[in-house]
Design a protein around this nucleic acid. Structure first.
Ligand SMILES: [Mn+2]
Ligand SMILES: [Mn+2]
Ligand SMILES: [Zn+2]
Ligand SMILES: [Zn+2]
Lengths: 138, 138
DNA sequence: GCTTGACTTAGACATTGTCTATTGTAAGAT
DNA sequence: ATCTTACAATAGACAATGTCTAAGTCAAGC
């Protein structure tokens, strides 16, 4: 992920302070941030960055396939910089904590043709829900 | 599903015209409606019903386990009256069409203990994405 | 038929996301 | 180094979705 900026430059991305900051925020320890969380962390480094730019940049990163949009939260979209290693998510229903998980087996193979209704199925998103150890102990 | 109203009455639900209309809308052929779609269909039958009541009633039905909230759409929550037969969803990325599907196998069994991080996992939501036959042919 | 606590309502407010007109600037050309 | 210009950033309006409150209404038990 540290070469994200290089890859983007190679793709003809114009490098600006704002885009660099958004990429750096995504590259940090916090995965699965909402757009607003990305914005507030970006503001810490570049106070004048606007909300619109954060939304634009996130949208571009998604289009480029460098970041995934995940719908684990029923309120806001979350942005996942871990776009290159397929995985799914485990979410605490109480506090919202999110972990990447790697289930065995291929969920796509579990959908027989008779259940595809003529669709061309290209992707599966699996969300496990439960209670995290922290929330269980309180 | 036609005895939904009976079940609710049995649970001490006070029966009002508004709640009856919301239940009737959910009971119709249209599954997976957004709150606003439920409201607009409810208004056809009971013009003075308010948005707040629709949101309240949907929330109550979810709490009672009679309706499911599904996050197939990254914009608005969708409400699924098919709460009593476990299933997952197949979504057209182009037009948003949603189908109920019944994959083989149990996705919960595919998540080994080592990938549960101490969570108590109680539920799995699987969303298959692709292109519906209608959208593919145009 | 009353009474009463639960229900509904209008509309303000909050959150999340999109769009536009204007201003600014990264990067190639000179 | 400076110039040029197409692309990017900005403020803020607007849109869509969801939540809350204070006041009025009514279903259901007596
Ligand atoms: Mn992830
Ligand atoms: Mn369904
Ligand atoms: Zn938790
Ligand atoms: Zn379609």
């Amino acid at each position: 992920m540290s070469d994200l900026l290089e890859r983007l430059r190679g793709r003809g991305w114009r490098m600006t302070a704002q885009r660099r900051v958004v990429a750096e925020v995504l590259d940090g320890e916090h995965v699965h941030l909402t757009a607003d969380e990305v914005h507030s962390r970006a503001v810490d480094r570049l106070p004048e960055i606007s909300r619109a730019t954060v939304y634009n940049t996130l949208g571009e990163l998604v289009s480029l396939g460098e970041v995934l949009e995940v719908a684990t939260d029923k309120r806001a979209k979350r942005y996942d910089p871990n776009a290159h290693r397929p995985h799914h998510h485990l979410v605490c229903a109480r506090c919202g904590a999110i972990r990447d998980v790697h289930p065995t087996g291929d969920p796509l193979a579990d959908l027989p043709d008779s259940e595809r209704f003529g669709f061309t199925v290209s992707d599966v998103e699996v969300t496990y829900r439960g209670t995290c150890p922290n929330c269980a102990s309180t």
